[in-house]
Simulated assay, not measured.
Amino acid sequence: MRNIIKLFLLSALCMAGGAQAAKLTMDDKVARWPRATTDEKIEFATRMGKAFSSLAPGLDRNYFIKCLEETANIGNPGDIKLEEAVKMCVAVNKPPSEE
């Protein structure tokens, strides 16, 4: 009986842990982006949009979703982290400097 209860509790814990969406972090590899859920991608891109929209209004959630999709799906991202990809996305969106 004890073993059945232990097995039930263990399976309940595993199911509860699996139900939570894993957040994308800056330390994740770009190669994880295509395998992430839509909710994970939107949540990550929203965080980046909130962090960088003060630099330029165009750096919003939609921009980061598009840029990271292109970065992850064109070529071989290798071991590039999302942090580096975000930096590249910000860099290519910089307005030309005034001289």
Rank of each mutant, 00 (worst) to 15 (best):
N93E: 08
C67V: 00
I80F: 14
L68E: 02
E83D: 12
N93R: 10
T71R: 11
A56C: 04
G75V: 07
V92S: 12
R61F: 01
Y63V: 00
S54Q: 05
E84R: 15
K94H: 08
E69V: 03
E83H: 15
K81W: 12
V92Y: 08
N93P: 03
I74E: 10
C67M: 05
A91E: 05
E70V: 06
D60T: 01
I65E: 07
P57T: 10
E84M: 14
F52G: 05
F64P: 00
K94F: 01
S53H: 06
D79Y: 14
D60I: 04
K66R: 00
K87H: 09
L68F: 01
C67H: 00
I74Y: 13
R61N: 03
N62K: 02
V86G: 09
T71N: 06
L59G: 01
L55A: 08
M88V: 03
G78Q: 14
L68M: 05
E70I: 00
F52K: 13
L68G: 00
K66N: 00
L68D: 01
S54M: 05
L55Y: 13
N62E: 06
D79H: 12
L68W: 01
G75I: 09
K66P: 02
S54G: 08
E83W: 12
V86R: 07
L59M: 10
G58M: 02
N93C: 03
A56Y: 04
K81T: 14
F64A: 08
E83Y: 15
K87S: 14
A85S: 03
G75M: 09
Y63A: 02
M88S: 11
I65T: 00
V92C: 14
R61M: 04
A56G: 05
P77I: 13
I74A: 15
E70H: 10
F64C: 03
K87I: 12
A85P: 02
S53M: 06
A72I: 00
A56F: 08
D79A: 12
T71W: 09
